Amino acid sequence: MITVNLYYKGTNGSARAFADEMEASGIAEAIRAEAGNLRYVYFQPINDPETVLLIDSWADQAAIDAHHASPMMKQLAELREKYDLHMTVERFVSDEYEADKKFIRS
């Protein structure tokens, strides 16, 4: 699994407005329905009301590539421009480490 954390930074509530429009317009739900999408969830940091975090997980790089080639990317880019958002990105490849499980309360 590949997880991409996208931090959308705006002003005057624009990052939250972007996430709200992504949900209300159905774009977020359409992305969730794409083959290989495992998670597409927005969060807002408690200490930073001008940032929204998107946690976006995919089965593999091929699924991400197909998503990037989809028509929804144009809609996404237009919304980012509309709300004048700037982004930073972190990318992680998941692994299972059995020793960590003893610290996780399920």
Rank of each mutant, 00 (worst) to 15 (best):
P45H: 03
A99N: 10
E81W: 09
M73D: 08
Y83P: 02
A30F: 02
A63L: 15
N5D: 05
N5F: 10
S106M: 12
D100L: 14
F103L: 04
G36Q: 12
A35H: 09
D20I: 04
A30D: 07
A63C: 12
A28V: 01
A15M: 09
G36F: 09
E90A: 13
H86E: 08
K82D: 06
R39Y: 09
W58S: 01
S57P: 06
E81Q: 10
A66V: 08
L76G: 04
R91K: 14
R16I: 00
Y97T: 06
K102D: 05
G13A: 12
K74V: 05
H67S: 10
E21L: 11
I46A: 09
M73T: 10
N12T: 04
A30G: 05
A77G: 08
S14R: 10
K74L: 11
I2Y: 00
G13D: 14
Y8E: 00
A19D: 03
L53I: 08
K82R: 08
I64Q: 02
S14L: 13
R91E: 11
L76W: 04
D20G: 03
I104K: 15
I27M: 12
A28T: 03
Y83M: 13
S14G: 05
F18C: 08
R105H: 07
Y8R: 01
E50D: 08
R80C: 04
H67W: 12
E78K: 13
M87N: 13
I55P: 00
A63K: 06
Y42C: 02
E21H: 11
A99L: 06
Y40F: 14
Y83C: 00
P49M: 05
D56H: 10
H67R: 15
T3N: 00
